Amino acid sequence: MAMFISIGEGGGPPGAGWSTSGGVFDCVVEATRKLFKDDEHCCLKAIYTPLDEQGQNFIVLDYVDVSCFNLFYSYCNRAMEEFPLSERAKIVPESHIPGILWNWSEVLRSMREDPRYRESL
């Protein structure tokens, strides 16, 4: 089943986003989720509600504010950098890791095209 990160309807081009297999999606969104702190729960909930509470096959960045959008970007980028040495990477066939990282970089590229993206906050 295809999984989706909806990136743009609220701040970028309608329908902008990234679609991939469930395994790659899980690597990206779950590694990113782990980096959120307790006091960032509102941002986390705004992004992950469709997946967590509605049983959907996507997360949504469309309507989050600039701060939350960039917080997710920062954590997503950090999670990608840490992925090759992570516990999850140890259970993925080594030959799949470059493809996962390439897909992950596409998420970040798409986010950089959104008007809410800030190089550093």
Rank of each mutant, 00 (worst) to 15 (best):
V29S: 06
F4D: 15
T20G: 08
L108T: 08
E119V: 04
E119T: 10
I59M: 14
F4I: 11
E81L: 14
L44P: 00
H41S: 12
C43M: 04
Q56P: 02
H96D: 13
E82F: 05
L121Y: 10
C68G: 00
Y48R: 04
G15T: 14
R118Y: 02
C42A: 12
T20F: 10
Q54K: 15
T20A: 11
I91P: 02
I47R: 03
W18T: 08
Q54N: 09
F4L: 14
K90I: 01
S19Q: 15
E30C: 12
C42E: 08
R116P: 03
E53C: 09
S67D: 15
L35S: 01
V64P: 06
V28F: 07
V92G: 11
F25A: 10
S95H: 02
A2W: 02
G99D: 09
T32P: 02
K45V: 08
T20P: 01
D62M: 04
L101V: 11
E9L: 01
G17V: 03
L85P: 00
E30L: 14
F72R: 06
S86I: 06
P13C: 01
V29T: 02
L61V: 06
F83T: 04
L101G: 01
I91M: 04
E9H: 03
M111Y: 08
L35K: 09
I47V: 08
R109P: 04
D62W: 11
Q54I: 01
E94H: 03
A31L: 05
R118V: 14
T32D: 08
E53L: 05
D52S: 11
V28W: 01
E53S: 14
L121N: 02
E30Y: 14
C27A: 11
G10C: 05
I97R: 07
F58S: 09
L71H: 01
P115D: 09
H96A: 15
V28E: 07
L71Y: 06
R78F: 00
H41C: 07
S19C: 09
I5A: 14
S105D: 07
F58V: 12
T49F: 14
A89T: 02
V107G: 04
I7G: 06
V107Q: 00
S110T: 10
F4G: 06
F36G: 05
I7S: 01
R78I: 00
E94R: 13
E113I: 06
I91T: 13
E81H: 12
I91L: 13
S105N: 15
G8F: 11
K37S: 04
D114F: 01
H41E: 12
D26R: 10
E87K: 07
F25C: 03
D62R: 04
E119R: 13
E113V: 01
H41F: 12
Q56W: 00
V28S: 04
V28A: 07
G11Q: 11
K37C: 01
D38Q: 10
S67M: 11
M1Y: 06
C68K: 10
K45Y: 13
F4T: 15
D52F: 10
L108Q: 03
M111S: 09
R109S: 05
V107S: 05
Y75A: 00
Q54S: 13
L61P: 02
C42Y: 12
K34N: 00
A31Q: 10
G8I: 12
S120N: 15
R118Q: 15
